[in-house]
Amino acid sequence: MVDENQLRQWGTKVVDIEKQALENLYQYIDSSEFAQACQLILQCTGKVIVMGMGKSGHIGNKISATLASTGTPAFFVHPGEASHGDLGVLSENDIVLAISNSGEASEILTLIPVIKRMGLPLISVTGKPESSMAKLAQLHLCIEVPEEACPLGLAPTSSTTATLVMGDALAVALLQARGFTQDDFALSHPGGSLGRKLLLKVSDVMHKGDELPSVKHDICITEALYEISKKGLGMTAVVDSNNTLVGIFTDGDLRRVIDADVNLRTTSIADVMTQGCVTITENILAAEALKVMDTKSINGLVVINEQQQPVGALNMLDMVKAGVI
């Protein structure tokens, strides 16, 4: 059984070594090459094609995904597959970002003459400024680290961390240069929670048509309860003869009515409904509606149009189902 203190010491040493590697990275991001690489990518009217073998390929996959999700069209191409047809995805407006810690990945070096012949800009990311890839590239981003966290000096550890951070630095700098917003991010993440919060409108979530609970103001409480039970939202809108909203009746109102020993069959819903209820319009974001419910400590809302007529209704459960919460 290995001593627990020893395991913790080994783990802590890895963090210390990789922390030093990131401290070392400042000088390369502060260099003119980093800014030039950003400018080159900003001028690109095509895609950023990211390449890398082995662990560099795994990091390259993540970098391409981060670029793509933050406003810079990009995707990863495996260098080995590229030599057997996948290089056909390159177009004349693209730019290539090639990653290799040694700067001598043969699979990438094989492709460089083709990339050059196509006239595509090449940015290399290596830990060796004197490497073949560094010299052949139009721009070189250095990710050299003092040492790998692997005690054997073999497994890519500090170098892959530095490469990943360099990729994040590129993506975020480009994001800010493009003026990329939360709304832009949501458009590329429609399936994510942020996308749902930023894209879903009340009209996408609300119950409308036959699903909308609504009763006339002159009916009795019992009839209103039937509508609430039928529609299953725990409330109903109350309207006048012109279908204008005059109030709302909820499960909470029912509890108060029962406590007051009101006759449910003879009392008009207009006498016990909540007047001046909180309403929203269908064109606002569902997240805004949720904020209204939280602020007012209510579980449901009636959605109205410009004529103050109810066109929809929603409750907290709808927000949960829609992934807004």
Rank of each mutant, 00 (worst) to 15 (best):
I143C: 05
E144S: 01
E144H: 12
E144Q: 14
V145P: 02
P146K: 10
P146W: 04
P146C: 12
P146D: 02
E147H: 10
E148R: 02
A149W: 07
C150F: 14
C150Q: 00
C150D: 13
P151L: 13
L152H: 13
L152N: 13
G153C: 08
G153H: 10
L154G: 12
L154K: 05
A155K: 10
P156C: 04
T157N: 01
T157E: 03
S159Y: 02
S159P: 04
T160N: 03
T160D: 07
A162F: 00
A162D: 05
G167T: 02
G167S: 03
A169P: 01
A169G: 04
L170F: 05
L170M: 08
A171P: 00
A171L: 07
A173P: 07
L174K: 04
L174V: 08
L174Y: 03
L175A: 05
L175T: 10
R178N: 10
R178V: 06
G179R: 09
F180W: 05
T181D: 03
Q182F: 13
Q182T: 10
D183N: 10
D183Y: 15
D184N: 11
F185C: 07
A186E: 06
L187W: 11
L187P: 07
L187S: 11
L187M: 14
H189P: 02
G191P: 00
G191T: 05
G191V: 05
G192C: 04
G192L: 12
G192W: 10
S193K: 03
S193T: 14
S193N: 11
S193R: 06
L194E: 09
L194V: 09
G195K: 02
R196M: 04
K197S: 06
K197G: 14
K197N: 14
K197I: 09
K197R: 15
L198K: 03
L199K: 01
L199C: 12
L200N: 11
L200K: 09
K201M: 09
K201F: 11
S203V: 13
S203C: 14
D204Q: 01
V205A: 07
M206E: 07
M206S: 06
H207Q: 06
H207C: 14
K208S: 11
G209N: 01
G209D: 07
D210P: 11
D210H: 13
D210C: 12
D210V: 12
L212I: 08
L212A: 08
P213R: 04
S214E: 08
S214Q: 10
S214N: 04
